[in-house]
Structure formats: C-alpha cells, structure tokens
C-alpha cells in the first residue's frame, strides 16, 4: 500500500495508538502525516476543491470519534482510505442539489479553470478531474484505490456490470484526452 519514506509505518502505528487513547497532540501529528492522502482522495472523488477540503475536514473529525474502531487487522492507511472513500461518497450524495436528485442528471467533470485553482496536479489527476462523475468515481475506486467492481457496485449502489462499463468509459476518455494533448 502507501509507503511514506519520511514517516515509517511504526511511527504511524504509534500515533494511532496514542490517538486511540485520546491524545490530541498525537492526532494533530497524525493529521500532518495523512491529510494529503485524504485530501487527494477526496479531490479525486469529488472533483471540487472546496468540497474536497470540507470532506477532508469531515474525515478527520469523524476519525477522531471513530479511531477506536480501528482494530489493527489491516494497515491503518488502508482503513483510513476506506473511511475516506465512504465519507466522500456520502458527501457527494448529501451535497447534490435537489434538482440533480429530482431529474437525476450526471455532473460533468471539472473545467480547466477549476483544475487550475487546485494548484499543482500531476498529469493523471488533471485528467481524472475532467471525467464525468460516475466514470470518475469508478476509475478512482478501481484504478487508483484498488477496489473490486463488486465492492464498488455496493458502495455506489450500481450493478457490477455498470461499474465495469464506467471503468472502460473512463479509460477510453482518459486515453482520448492523453493522445490529443
């Protein structure tokens, strides 16, 4: 999974243990180590800088309250990514405006101006943010985060076949944009 050369896992595990005991200083250090991962995942899923910042805050507030539920059976970063994905997806549902819920149309991806506001992004991130919503969610969850299509189908409340077809749609769009760039 994610290896961080500056902050090895044993240090992270120690911070997690101390945070589970209610140590706020440890939690602050944990935030310093992990917030970019959390923010990056929120940004990729939500394709909106302000929403990603809000969702990132929500993740850490919930993390403070739920960190005792982390049982150490998986790596902390794996668990954190799973918590982040779920929070970002429910954030997306919660913040769809009522018209979007009523007529059920898909949000298009971020435009060039929005991408420019997000600061330094690598080539793939710039393209991911341009993807339409469903294709983007599936691509990030499967292609970047490594979830299986069965898991994604459950998370996004869609058929397994839809998840696979959205993934292919995303790849096709990314390839088209990359080759025409």
């Amino acid at each position: 999974m994610l290896v961080d050369a500056v902050h090895p896992f044993d240090e992270l595990d120690e911070l997690v243990k101390r945070t589970q005991q209610g140590d706020q200083a440890a939690f602050s250090a944990l935030y310093e180590q992990c917030h970019r991962r959390v923010y990056a995942l929120c940004l990729r899923l939500l394709a909106d800088q302000a929403h990603a910042e809000d969702a990132c805050q929500e993740v850490f507030v919930q993390l403070w309250h739920k960190i005792t539920q982390f049982d150490g059976k998986s790596k902390f970063t794996t668990w954190l990514h799973s918590v982040t994905s779920n929070i970002a997806i429910s954030y997306l549902r919660k913040h769809k405006n009522w018209l979007q819920k009523v007529v059920s149309f898909e949000n298009s991806g971020m435009d060039e101006a929005g991408i420019a506001l997000c600061g330094d992004l690598n080539g793939l991130d710039k393209l991911i943010l341009k993807l339409p919503e469903r294709a983007r969610l599936v691509f990030v969850l499967h292609g970047v985060e490594g979830y299986r299509h069965e898991e994604i189908a459950e998370m996004l409340n869609m058929a397994v076949g839809s998840s696979k077809s959205q993934y292919h749609r995303a790849k096709k769009l990314l390839q088209e944009w990359y080759e025409n760039d």
Binding site: M1, R36, Y39, C118, G119
Partner: peptide, 17 residues
Amino acid sequence: LSKAKQQDGLPKPQQPL
C-alpha cells in the same frame, strides 16, 4: 498510478484545514 500513491506527488489543500 504508481506516483498517485506517493506522498510527494499528492495535491495539497489550498488553505489550512
């Protein structure tokens, strides 16, 4: 995709959170 998981290449929030 391999870079997407490394801390250095990750996007940063634009304001302190």
